[in-house]
């Protein structure tokens, strides 16, 4: 039935006047706007939608509460921290906790800024190195078919499950054999080969058209040139994703098992010593929590759309 109608329109089309055509186009446009405005999917009930929104709101509040609470606690003056009953928002917000934190840390014989520099350095070097090394490996794994490549990738996927603690002990033994215990290398080197970075990068690079690479090859570009000039600029969303996973990993690295020297300790390690300071340091501890959590969250907020673009290709295909 509809088929014949469509056929009729087709036949009739050449005959219609210019005015008719304009009308038809206007109609089409109107239909389009209607369909955009009327986004509701036909198989959704209003009640269900309401339920979903309601539930999402409740859960979102529950998820956000502890973080909001951490921020508000860090801004509370001492008397409000221990007020009964406790208040959610500070009445007289103050930055005292943050300045106290720096005073406390200033009294230790290693200046506080040192911990910042330590962690900053580790995060920077580790992330840059990881991005480069993992992308290089991901590039050949995604775009070239060479013996052993698939096997290697499967091993990497299995390694996604190695949590740091499972490999921690033998890792310690290996590091002490390499003589890198109590150096930054003990934190940086394993992070350079984090499986998640390679995994995400490879999955994303598979989306680059092979024709692009082949045409570059015909133009006489070497493999490294292709990688650096053509592939890397095309996978910028994946960069950000790899960067946030790496930063999150390194910025939060406590590394208490491989670093002993006071002067080499990481920020989180040093801050945890403050958090362990008991009730009297509640405010400072909250300030610590805020400082540590802000960096990864801010990076995530700034790069969310690119990260989601990368994660769309994150699936494990069989």
């Amino acid at each position: 039935m509809s088929n014949t109608a469509a056929a009729k329109v087709k036949i009739a089309a050449p005959k219609e006047s210019i005015g008719d055509r304009k009308d038809r186009k206007r109609n089409q446009k109107a239909q389009k706007t209607v369909s955009i405005a009327h986004r509701r999917k036909p198989n959704r009930s209003r009640g269900g939608d309401f339920g979903v929104y309601f539930m999402l709101t409740i859960v979102a509040l529950m998820m956000a509460f502890p973080l909001v609470f951490a921020i508000s606690s860090s801004l509370k003056p001492l008397d409000e921290l221990f007020r009964f009953p406790p208040t959610l928002f500070p009445q007289h917000p103050t930055m005292d906790n943050f300045s106290d934190l720096f005073v406390t840390m200033g009294q230790s014989w290693v200046p506080f800024s040192r911990y910042f520099v330590n962690t900053g350095l580790i995060t920077l070097i580790g992330t840059a190195g990881h991005l480069f090394i993992a992308s290089m490996a991901a590039f050949v794994l995604a775009k070239y078919d060479f013996p052993g490549g698939k096997l290697f990738f499967n091993i990497v996927v299995t390694a996604l499950m190695f949590s740091g603690y499972v490999t921690g002990i033998p890792n310690y033994i290996i590091m002490s054999n390499l003589g890198i215990i109590d150096t930054y290398m003990a934190i940086i080197l394993p992070a350079l080969a984090a499986p998640i970075g390679l995994f995400l990068m490879k999955q994303f690079m598979e989306g680059i058209p092979t024709a692009l690479i082949e045409s570059a090859k015909i133009d006489g570009a070497g493999e490294f040139r292709i990688f650096w000039r053509i592939v890397m600029p095309n996978v910028k969303p994946a960069w950000l994703t790899v960067i946030i996973f790496s930063v999150q990993n390194l910025w939060n690295a406590k590394a208490s098992t491989v670093i002993y020297s006071e002067a080499k300790k990481t920020l989180v390690y040093a801050l945890q010593q403050i958090q362990a300071g008991g009730v009297a340091r509640t405010g400072q501890a909250a300030a610590v929590t805020v400082i540590v959590m802000l960096v990864p969250i801010v990076i995530f907020i700034c790069s969310q759309s690119q990260i989601l673009e990368t994660m769309a290709s994150s699936g494990i295909k069989e």
């Binding site: 090394i133 993992a134 290089m136 490996a137 590039f139 050949v140 794994l141 070239y144 060479f146 013996p147 490549g149 290697f152 091993i155 990497v156 390694a159 190695f162 499972v166 490999t167 002990i169 033998p170 890792n171 033994i173 290996i174 390499l178 080197l189 394993p190 350079l192 080969a193 499986p195 390679l198 493999e223 990688f227």
Partner: peptide
């Protein structure tokens, strides 16, 4: 495909040292 192995080498060496070797020694 020599060049492929060259590309993968830095990652593979580190990955082997800090992920596979620990598993095996464990």
């Amino acid at each position: 495909m020599k060049v492929c192995y060259l590309f993968i080498a830095p990652y593979a060496i580190l990955f082997f040292t800090f992920y596979i070797l620990p598993m095996l020694t464990s």
